[in-house]
Design a protein around this nucleic acid. Structure first.
Lengths: 341, 341
DNA sequence: TAAAAGTACGAAAACGGTTTCGCGGCAAAA
DNA sequence: TTTTGCCGCGAAACCGTTTTCGTACTTTTA
């Protein structure tokens, strides 16, 4: 038997008062007399009254929902960020609606438009790869033009003004490479992705910067660009055959772990012959054998920061055309040292 | 400059027709004359009109949102399931609101109550560990009593009637162990969690069943119960010292990978001296060295199935008191054979 | 030519709340 | 006794839709 939810109207009818009286009584407004208030509250409690979120949202023009759009959900770093967002948002009474762009520009646009039509009070977005390639941010502009605040995280762009939270990938990469140099490594390879944009690009820059700082010539033969779903590893294998190197910086965990495996096959000892450092301190880094020294991006902190910035914008007036209202927060990365160095 | 969203009322005012006319015209109702319809549609298009989701939800008493509650988001299997849910739901025009219970009963209750008040049309839930321990499902009962359908996945219970989708952990474990036996293994250890309930329990049962089927006596010394955040690994180390075994079934990836590491330290060759099989075919299994034979739970398929079952219930009438309306779908697990066996 | 039918649109209620404002009654102040 | 003020409550507008029903006008039919 379906027991419909009890509404203000129901309570009003039962208790023979007006709807407004019920509403005020439940908000403990002292406009309503003590005993009426008590009667109403008691009734509401016993009948398990809960206000209808949708109605409240419509009236208040506030949903207390925040929309999160990420490129991928089966992804350690993004879920870590998400956890940070979720925790902080929840603690402030917000819920989170997630959409996944699947690295597709079109999906990102569809999702933002969908959510922007009243479902959410603000967005936290990590841009899709396609969006970063196209450099088309008109969908974001549309959203902010409507007064909906946007916070970008990790996958950001300089071409769109809004709050952002990032780690300084360039500095993190530089420091990692400098750490390798300090350990006496001279020929340091870079494992990176085929398309070199956004965060990956900055990591490469940091790599070069470190070499430069230490007067080590940049050798483009030491850069291995790997396609993402490349399973056969022919490319990496020939890289191991043809190049000599004593350390590797990898822009992600997977390339690093695959690299360590190959290093083993080629008879190199880790870290004596070759050291490895990977970006993203995920589960692989921790449990690999040998465990992988890695650059922790502190995703949870990043998510929390993003949520904090967003909710601040949601709850406080600001002039969205004034660029000085926008901040970019930088989360310090840190190097987690393990067996691979 | 904030450009407020244009509403039906705005269009009606501008075009000097009534709100109802606009609404109907935009729905292409032939109740409205050809040219008025065209005028209105053209105006709406040029002003980028989009109906307000919240208002539509309130009116229609349908949100086209589904609520997902999972114990943890930084978790490969759950995110895989989530991806399946999200894809299928999106393709049918639904959005997904996620809440994380953090394995806590209270959070699970709070989240269900919050979302049940109008925010969603149905739930997909993986029960928290605490809920499974307490065996208190009154919050779910409340929800279904209101006519909101619930689908449970993976972390399910027999004590609450609703649609469910699971893998048969017992059978999967049994088959894994039988595979080990077929490879000539005789002393097969089980690595499991300290609290042995829900899926873990079924996996242990399958383990025993396999031994029984092959007349191998169950030796409780070969069962290693590991607390989850046990870092020092003293327990596992002493297990390796005291016991002899030639294979391991682990209820998750992490225990298996840690086990392989220790096996290496103790000088065992994998798989010749000790074979390993782990539950959950995640990223660790794939990239571990040696790569881990594992039981794939096909989370994406599970998520898709859950979404399909839920949306079916949402969109079609059914009698929620009639248990025969509820089905439990079983997703076939499969053994992904890799180097560890 | 009068009645019936059809066309094109608008008024209004409804979804479930919040909030402003007004008003009657009663007590305190003048 | 009249005025003022306060208390306690209700009417009604409003948020942005959807949908039913009514109606004025035109066209067809008998």
């Amino acid at each position: 038997m379906i027991r419909r939810k009890v509404t203000l109207k129901d309570i009003a009818r039962e208790l023979d008062v007006s709807i407004s009286t019920v509403s005020k009584a439940l908000k403990n407004s002292n406009e309503i007399g003590r005993d009426t208030r008590n009667r109403i509250q008691a009734f509401a409690r016993s009948h398990n009254y809960r206000p209808n979120n949708i109605a409240v949202s419509l009236k208040n023009k506030k949903t207390r929902n925040i929309g999160v759009i990420i490129p991928d959900i089966v992804h350690h770093f993004f879920t870590t960020v998400f956890r940070g967002i979720e925790k902080h948002a929840n603690s402030l009474g917000y819920n989170v609606i997630v959409c996944v762009s699947d690295e597709s520009f079109d999906k990102e646009v569809i999702n933002t438009e969908l959510l922007a039509n009243g479902s959410i009070d603000g967005f936290i977005i990590g841009l899709s790869a396609e969006t970063q390639e196209k450099r088309d941010y008109s969908h974001l502009k549309e959203v902010t033009d409507q007064g909906i605040p946007v916070v970008l995280f990790d996958r950001v762009t300089d071409e769109f003004p809004c709050d952002k939270v990032i780690i300084d990938d360039e500095v993190a990469a530089r420091q990692a490479v400098e750490y390798l140099i300090s350990k006496g490594k001279k020929r340091i390879a870079l494992f990176t992705t085929a398309h070199d944009l956004g965060v990956t690009k900055n990591r490469s820059l940091g790599y070069k910067k470190a070499l430069e700082n230490h007067r080590i010539p940049f050798d483009k033969n030491l850069v291995l660009q790997l396609p993402f779903q490349f399973e056969e590893e022919e490319l990496s294998r020939s890289f191991f055959k043809e190049q000599t190197f004593d350390a590797v910086l990898s822009v992600n965990e997977i390339f690093a772990v695959r690299g360590m495996r190959l290093a083993g096959e080629f008879g190199y000892r880790i870290p004596e012959d070759v050291s490895f450092i990977g970006f993203t301190d995920g589960i692989l880094s921790k449990y690999a054998v040998p465990s992988l020294t890695s650059i922790a991006q502190h995703g949870e902190q990043m998510g929390e920061t993003a949520a904090r910035m967003l909710i601040d914008k949601i709850e406080n007036e600001y002039d969205e055309t004034d660029a000085s209202n926008y901040r970019t927060e930088i989360i310090e990365a840190s190097l987690i040292k393990r067996e691979s160095t």
